[in-house]
Design a protein around this nucleic acid. Structure first.
Lengths: 348, 348
DNA sequence: GCACAGAGGGAGAGCGCTCTCCGCCGCTGA
DNA sequence: TCAGCGGCGGAGAGCGCTCTCCCTCTGTGC
């Protein structure tokens, strides 16, 4: 197409020349600083449009020490990534997409850009901190996928503005957002009981994951308030297959089960599959309730009764906290906890 | 925690001082350029580690005119984004996650970073081009979600290295990767026919989407080769609900239907739901085949027979093409078409 | 008439890096 | 012995911007 020379893009200097003013004045106009004669203001903008000027990001960053972008950092354990070159297990999970959507919803209007970073190995973790310190992003929202993650600590120690998505397993001086997992689980318990379930089981997540712990505790406490001292529980890992296996195991232990709480929707869907194969009607014979209210909840049949986890709002708030901290590093470390809500559909 | 002053991070100059050499030499060592005395080499690295030096990205970008990152740009039409503040419809779709996974799988080892950009409005499109021209990324993989998108053209005209994910609706001088949609659809047709289906219908996607057109054409041609001149077809929009509605409509038109090809898995799953409600056994009474081989294919019951769309590999290849073009802008515009494959499960 | 304030705009340093140019040094060949 | 050469390292310009300093110019008060 165009065989012409790469037409070096216009600089401030070029605009200044066209407008007949100094570089400094153009800079002032563009950044809206100080009083500039309205007439000159106009002239400068005209010159900007005439030349097609766009500020050079690197040059600006160099002097302002700001990049105008934040990072979404996914910190996973090594063994996961190694087994799955595409990390599709995670990226395909609605969890990721909902967080990205929430993050972008607040970033978009502000013009701040988003970088996506991954840290699977310890080496990568160190590299990420270096990158962050030297101008890849002004701050970072951390999505830590395994408990005992050292990354939040590294980042906090490096003085990089950061906000965690979800309570950290190890207490760390970083702000975080979370959902009241315990309260959500309690809602699930109340709902099953109100429905008349009497023998209720749990398909939990990994025991060391904070969200899993909180949901478990909340559910058990609510059940205890109703006199249910012991709740059979099997451990899953938040996958469809583990929900299916968990359901079978639970039923083997407690054949008279009439209600199940799965700690996420995917496992709840797995449980429903197992129940169908065993010819137990859902919800009439066994009621199933999930957690998250993500896509599987609507795609499953019967549709899942679940606890809504407002991930988009949480992600949006995380970014707001982050931006506040970037703008004023003295902002206190804080946590924002969102209220879950029960979404009643057909499975319970 | 640390109330100390922000300890200005070390610069090349600092490292040079520690190593007792010039700035230029440190730069050479770090960038692995030219022959540097092995002994000095060693000394410099020691100094780098001692000072904890990390190159400043902005400064480097400023002179090299490279950012060391590429963008994944999602170009959507305005009406979508407006209705869905989080764009969750798209980000939650396994499509997005698989592409991100594929992109990161090749980016990670190279140390190139990923920026995520969104362009919903025309205004945003112009802004994106400006950002791209001035140092937000060295190139861009474009995920265009609506036909007639002007963005690829804008980007091509701006001379920004770019690769499209999927054939553009409007011919544009940009490299792209795609799957042989027609061949995949033909495989689906052959499979249904081999199974003994005689009255086969299609649940298509929007008529103006290239992937939809190609699948439709491929399917029809394959059917024609077997003497099926007319195939009933209803139009969906790639969602679960549209698959369900499409199935009902199809069945109303053609009650004797014994096979259905849905242009993606989500619609296939919807079709299965409809069939269950209408008490038609899948696959015995009606065989259902999808396209993509994404998560719904495994989550549905019965599990879906589908055509595998190697999105991760395609995304990876797109990035490789992009990087090649960034490194050598004279690289020719090309297209890489991937072969689909049939994945036989239980629904057909 | 003059000091002074205050606002607007220009000059120029400098952010941290890369890269060209050049000089030094030790070696080779005549 | 000396020009020539090639390898290695230093000096320094300059990437495009922001921002401080300072100069100029107008308007005000005494």
């Amino acid at each position: 197409m165009s065989t012409s020379e790469v037409p070096r893009s216009p600089t401030l200097e070029d605009v200044a020349q066209v407008a007949g003013v100094s570089r400094a004045t153009v800079s002032r106009v563009i950044n809206g600083v100080r009083n500039v004669d309205p007439e000159l203001h106009e002239v400068v903008w005209r010159a900007v449009n005439a030349t097609g000027y766009v500020p050079n990001r690197a040059a600006r960053s160099l002097v302002t020490r700001r990049t105008g972008s934040v990072a979404l950092l996914v910190s996973d354990s090594e063994d996961h990534s190694v087994n799955d070159p595409f990390m599709s297990r995670f990226f395909t999970d609605p969890y990721f997409g909902r967080v990205v959507g929430g993050v972008l919803s607040v970033l978009r209007p502000t013009g701040v850009h988003l970088a996506l970073m991954l840290a699977g190995t310890d080496e990568a973790r160190v590299k990420v901190v270096g990158d962050l310190r030297q101008g890849h992003a002004d701050g970072v929202v951390i999505l830590s996928l395994h408990p005992g993650d050292t990354l939040p600590r590294l980042i906090a120690d490096a003085g990089i503005p950061a906000v965690l998505f979800g309570r950290p397993a190890i207490p760390t001086p970083i702000s975080y957002v979370d959902v009241a997992n315990d309260r959500g689980a309690a809602m699930a318990a109340e709902h099953l009981i109100a429905r008349g379930c009497e023998r209720i089981g749990i398909i939990s997540g990994p025991a060391d994951v904070p969200a899993s712990q909180d949901r478990l505790a909340g559910f058990r406490q609510a059940m205890a308030r109703h006199g249910h001292a012991y709740i059979p529980c099997v451990e899953g890992n938040f996958t469809l297959a583990s929900g299916e296996a968990g359901m079978r195991k639970l039923l083997a232990e407690e054949p008279g089960l009439d209600g199940v709480f799965a700690l996420n929707d995917l496992m709840a869907q797995g449980a429903v599959h197992a129940l169908r194969e065993l010819d137990r009607a859902v919800p009439d014979e066994v009621a199933v309730i999930g957690f998250d209210d993500s896509t599987p909840a609507l795609a499953a049949r019967p549709t899942l009764t679940t606890v809504r986890h407002p991930m988009e709002d949480m992600a949006a708030e995380a970014v707001r906290l982050l931006i506040a901290r970037i703008d004023d590093p003295s902002t206190r470390v804080t946590s924002v906890i969102f209220e879950p809500s029960l979404v009643v559909r057909h499975s319970a």
